[in-house]
């Protein structure tokens, strides 16, 4: 139960309760504005009845040919509003728009390999690992989580334009690619 509405440029004044959380990065204003001026329909906010922001998603449409797809750039929910299926609802909207408006073949997202909770949630939503991207989160360096901490899973979910499910594969966890050029390692 929350208000689902478009992400607006002026929401940058309101998103502190989400962005002060350690796992959410605050980027320069241009980062947000490039999404809003190209894919505003893939960016939305969940808001409490009190007007407080609860979470948001920023997405884009990219790729060519059968690789054309919706991409989840940032999905974030404030700590006090977790466990309310907000992430699920925002993902549903992004998938719907990627499918209906953009006609993409799939939706994809990147998640830290060690983030088991998130991976589990995305699997529950129909996503599967397409490949493992080496050193995607390289800037942090190797932490206690080892490789799992800096590698990302690229997870995908096919949309209605891909009824044959060509955009996903069963052994995705074993396909390791480089973060720099996407070449298979």
């Amino acid at each position: 139960m929350s208000v689902l509405r478009p992400f607006k440029a002026t929401d940058l004044f309101k998103f502190n309760n989400i962005n002060l959380d350690i796992w959410t990065e605050t980027y320069g204003i241009s980062f947000y504005l490039q999404y809003l001026t190209r894919w505003p329909d893939l960016c939305c906010v969940q808001e409490a009845p009190s007007g407080r922001m609860m979470g948001y998603v920023l997405g884009k449409a990219e790729g060519t040919g059968p690789e054309f797809h919706g991409h989840v750039t940032a999905l974030s929910v404030a700590p006090e509003y977790r466990r309310l299926s907000l992430g699920r609802k925002m993902m549903a909207l992004l998938e719907f728009v990627s499918d209906e408006t953009y006609g993409g073949f799939f939706v994809d997202l990147y998640v830290r390999c060690m983030n088991k909770v998130a991976i589990g949630m995305y699997e529950g939503l129909g996503y599967s690992v397409y490949r493992r991207v080496r050193e995607y989160y390289g800037s942090l360096g190797l932490g206690p989580g080892g490789r799992d901490e800096e590698d990302a899973f690229d997870m995908r979910k096919p949309l209605s334009r891909d009824p044959q499910r060509r955009s996903v594969r069963a052994n995705g966890r074993d396909v390791v690619v480089s973060a720099h050029d996407g070449s298979v390692l």
Binding site: K8, A9, T10, G28, I29, S30, L33, L36, P40
Partner: peptide
């Protein structure tokens, strides 16, 4: 320095709904 570039971009991309908020 930057925001007006995006207002201009909203015109070229025809994202009129965003302009008042930008």
């Amino acid at each position: 320095h930057e925001t007006s570039d995006w207002i201009v971009r909203a015109f070229t991309q025809e994202k009129y709904s965003q302009i008042p908020d930008l």
